[in-house]
């Protein structure tokens, strides 16, 4: 008989548990269907020099970070030192300058430094659409064969570098 009175209490705690999990999920963190798939192909003018092309295949051969950014994106400015830090740790960092103007982007790099090995200038945002970009900054970790192995939406923090990016990068480096 006593057990019957416990049922509503248990149901209540089950509901609290459900809400606790549900409300602590970030609805902006969408699982990307691109993780585990090949990085979409592109061939763009390079940001610094429109005569030079920068294609997806230029990133292959070594695992690399591919960072989507824009000068109008405030979070990208905060994130910028993290990319410099990754570069210092030996991670090649490539950029996709998303829906920006060349002069604004170059001014941004002149002011905050340029950790990128090469930057694709995606003025129309079409390459961004192919990469499922919806909130800059977004960062992809691509292995040596061009497979996307990890995606992070929003700012890279020191914690994410330590716990996710660097360990996975070392693992990808060891892969043949």
């Amino acid at each position: 008989m006593k057990l019957r009175f416990l049922i509503p209490l248990l149901a209540f705690f089950a509901l609290v548990g459900l809400l606790f999990v549900g409300l602590s999920l970030d609805p902006r963190e969408l699982p990307s269907p691109l993780v585990g798939k090949e990085a979409p192909d592109f061939d763009l003018p390079e940001l610094h020099n429109p005569e030079v092309r920068f294609a997806r295949d230029d990133m292959l051969g070594k695992p690399a970070l591919f960072n989507v950014w824009a000068s109008w994106c405030v979070t990208c400015r905060h994130e910028h030192p993290m990319l410099t830090e990754l570069r210092r740790n030996g991670v090649p960092v490539y950029g996709l300058n998303y829906k920006d103007t060349r002069s604004d982007a170059l001014r941004f790099l002149a002011r905050y430094g340029d950790p990128y090995s090469a930057i694709g200038f995606d003025e129309s945002g079409l390459v961004g659409i192919d990469y499922g970009v919806y909130a800059t900054p977004e960062t992809f970790l691509i292995d040596r064969n061009g497979m996307i192995r990890f995606k992070h939406i929003g700012m890279i923090t020191p914690e994410i570098i330590e716990t996710r990016i660097l360990p996975l990068y070392r693992q990808l480096e060891a892969e043949t």
Binding site: L30, P31, S32, P33, I129, G132
Partner: peptide, 8 residues
């Protein structure tokens, strides 16, 4: 659209 942004 789904290939890029998922079922979402």
């Amino acid at each position: 659209m789904v290939a890029r942004y998922g079922d979402f």
